[in-house]
Design a protein around this nucleic acid. Sequence first.
DNA 1: AACATCTTTCAATTTATTTTGAAAGTTCAG
DNA 2: CTGAACTTTCAAAATAAATTGAAAGATGTT
Lengths: 166, 166
Amino acid sequence: MTYDEAKAKFLQTWGTLATQWGINRTMAQIHALLLVAPDPLSAEDVMEQLMISRGNANMNLRELIDWGLIFRHLKPGERREFFVAEKDIWKVARQVAKERRRREIKPVLEVLAELQLADADTPEAIEFQKVISGISSVAGFADSTLNAVVRAEENWLMGQFMKVFK
Amino acid sequence: MTYDEAKAKFLQTWGTLATQWGINRTMAQIHALLLVAPDPLSAEDVMEQLMISRGNANMNLRELIDWGLIFRHLKPGERREFFVAEKDIWKVARQVAKERRRREIKPVLEVLAELQLADADTPEAIEFQKVISGISSVAGFADSTLNAVVRAEENWLMGQFMKVFK
DNA sequence: AACATCTTTCAATTTATTTTGAAAGTTCAG
DNA sequence: CTGAACTTTCAAAATAAATTGAAAGATGTT
């Protein structure tokens, strides 16, 4: 397989995977493109390589910055801005864990805590409370796990996991 | 908060969360509904409570069975079928981990392995190989973690994690 | 201030996903 | 075999999400 074929397959696979995880395909593809780019790319470069519109490129680039996965990069003497991805994949994983925790797990934990206050005076309500408290533990577990990933140092993390789960 | 309010909020929250994770809202809501139902429900019950069509109910019920999250339940003397959810939330988490691993992680690992065979004879190609091998380790890590969840016994799991990540 | 260059916005359009509901399929009792 | 009760299918319709591209907004230059 040539480099060009491999790159195309990577962009395509990454986009598909993202879709399954509720992430917009283009955003994932821009991220993938920047990940494998040896040098900073301009919005124009991204538009050309992925054949997408200026508006689309701009929106998704901003979203990626918002997720902390890419950064603006200014070249001296150049007017327009360039973009670089965080290349350390473990840092990327930690950043994603951090954001998902903040954006998704925390709000859910809040709602669950609130639901636990509801009356439990009928068979249905009692069953309901059981389910909610079960979900709360699982969510708490997910939260701790993601937090562990967030706090972990690059190599330390896998070592710890391997120790426990061989 | 009354039980009815709490239940409505739960169904709604669960549906929203699902959407963020690339899961169809109705499927999540049916699952939530069956989770908190003390007794098996018929397709008709689901249609009524969630105000959805027969076709929609049927499709998503099948999909949930396919994910191993709910089961058909036959009542003696009744013609139609009923459905019950797996109520042990840790089992649910394990089942989801298992399926996601099978459906998503494994195919990605295969593609990554294939991409590692590509030529690395230019600066771009070398950068590309670095990224791919980084992603491979993270994906391998995710795979191990999910596998740990899959294999874990209910209470053992949290204990192990807490030991390591305090 | 007028211009050039680049970025952002957003209403309109396109594309993708979900939902509907009627028809076809299945199963079984009489 | 026939009809009643229930399930499944699937083309069409509705809804939701992503994308476009032109216009408006910035920002610096002459």
